[in-house]
C-alpha cells in the first residue's frame, strides 16, 4: 500500500474521518485509521472513560462500536470515496473472532488495509491479552492472514517486556507492517473520593508524555524487522513526526493531538514538507531510519 504522504490519523482519535471534515481537508492526509471495529457490536465500558494528566490523557473506552456488518452496510458507503487511505482497525476476542471480522473487511473494495489491534488495554476478553506474548500475537496474525488478503498492519502494545520479540513474531506470520505504540496502561486517583477515577480502574495513557517511550520502541523495532514500521505515540507536530521517521518509521500516526487541534494532521503534512525543502531533502524516504 502506497500513501500520498506519511501522515495518518490514529484509530479512536479521528472517528471515521467524516466527523472532522468541516475542519480538515481529508484528502490531504496520507491515511485515516478508523475507529476500532469488532465482529459483534460492543457497548464499551461505563462512564467515566477519560482522565487528564500532565501532558496527556487516559481512556478506557473499551472498543465501543456497532460491529463490522453495520460498518460495511452503513458507514462504508459514506467513507469509501474519501480521497485518503481508509483503513479499518480490527479487534476481537479470539483469533477466530479477529479473522471473521477481517474477512468482512476483505470484501470491501475501497479499504486497502486493516490495522490489527492486539493491544487494546481496556477490554478483558482479548485485545491486549494477545499482544503481550509472542504466541498470542502470532496466533491472531496467523488466523487473520488466512482470512485477509490485502495489507495487514499489526498494532503493537508497549505494555510488554520485549516489544522486539512480538514484532518479529508477527512479521514471521505474514504481517505486512507493524504500528506502534498503542497506549500505556496507567491509572489516576481522585484523592477526595479515595478512588481510581476511570470506570474500570485503569486506562490507556496517550499524548505527548508517552513520546520518548514510543520513539525508543520504534527505533528498536525498526532496527529488528524488515517490514515497514508505522510510528505513533504523542506526535503533536512535524518535529515529533520527523523524529519518528528518523528513528525508522516509514509513516506516522497522529492520535491524541487531534483532540487539541483537530486540524493538526494537515499542519504536520505541511511541516514535514517545509523541513524537507529547507534541508534540501528530496523525499521522506531519504530520512527514514537515519538516526544513529
Amino acid at each position: 500500500m502506497e500513501l500520498r504522504n506519511p501522515v495518518m490519523t490514529a484509530s479512536g482519535t479521528f472517528g471515521y474521518g467524516t466527523e472532522f471534515q468541516d475542519v480538515v481537508e481529508l484528502g490531504r492526509i496520507g491515511g485515516i485509521i478508523m475507529k476500532g471495529t469488532t465482529y459483534e457490536p460492543r457497548q464499551g465500558n461505563d462512564y467515566p472513560r477519560m482522565a487528564e494528566t500532565t501532558g496527556g490523557m487516559l481512556n478506557c473506552v473499551g472498543l465501543q462500536n456497532k460491529g463490522v456488518r453495520y460498518f460495511a452496510e452503513h458507514i462504508y458507503p459514506l467513507i469509501r470515496k474519501i480521497d485518503s487511505r481508509m483503513i479499518v482497525n480490527v479487534s476481537g476476542s479470539s483469533p477466530q473472532d479477529y479473522a471473521r471480522c477481517a474477512a468482512v473487511v476483505d470484501t470491501l473494495e475501497d479499504i486497502p488495509a486493516i490495522e490489527l489491534n492486539i493491544s487494546c488495554p481496556n477490554v478483558h476478553d482479548g485485545g491486549m491479552a494477545f499482544g503481550v506474548t509472542t504466541d498470542g500475537a502470532a496466533s491472531v496474525v496467523k488466523a487473520v492472514r488466512q482470512a485477509y488478503h490485502k495489507t495487514l498492519i499489526v498494532k503493537l502494545s508497549p505494555n510488554v517486556t520485549d516489544i522486539v520479540s512480538i514484532a518479529k513474531a508477527v512479521e514471521a506470520e505474514g504481517a505486512d507492517s507493524v504500528s506502534l505504540i498503542n497506549t500505556l496502561m496507567g491509572t489516576v486517583i481522585d484523592i477526595e473520593k479515595r478512588k481510581r477515577t476511570l470506570s474500570i480502574g485503569t486506562g490507556g495513557l496517550s499524548g505527548p508524555c508517552v513520546k520518548p517511550i514510543a520513539l525508543r520502541m520504534v527505533y528498536q523495532v525498526a532496527h529488528a524487522v524488515d517490514i515497514p514500521v508505522i510510528g505513533l505515540g504523542g506526535i503533536c507536530n512535524a518535529t515529533d513526526a520527523i523524529e519518528f521517521i528518523m528513528a525508522g518509521a516509514s509513516a506516522i500516526e497522529i492520535g491524541t493531538a487531534n483532540f487539541l487541534d483537530p486540524a493538526v494532521s494537515m499542519k504536520v503534512v505541511d511541516g514535514i514538507n517545509e523541513w524537507l525543502d529547507a534541508h534540501n531533502v528530496a523525499s521522506v524516504r531519504d530520512i527514514i531510519g537515519v538516526a544513529e
Binding site: G12, T13, G15, E19, Y47, R49, M57, V61, F259, P262
Partner: peptide, 16 residues
C-alpha cells in the same frame, strides 16, 4: 459529561 474531542470521535463523553 467530561469530553476530549467534542466531535464524536473519542467516545469518552458517552451517556447511557
Amino acid at each position: 459529561n467530561m469530553m476530549a474531542c467534542g466531535l464524536g470521535a473519542c467516545l469518552c463523553c458517552v451517556e447511557k
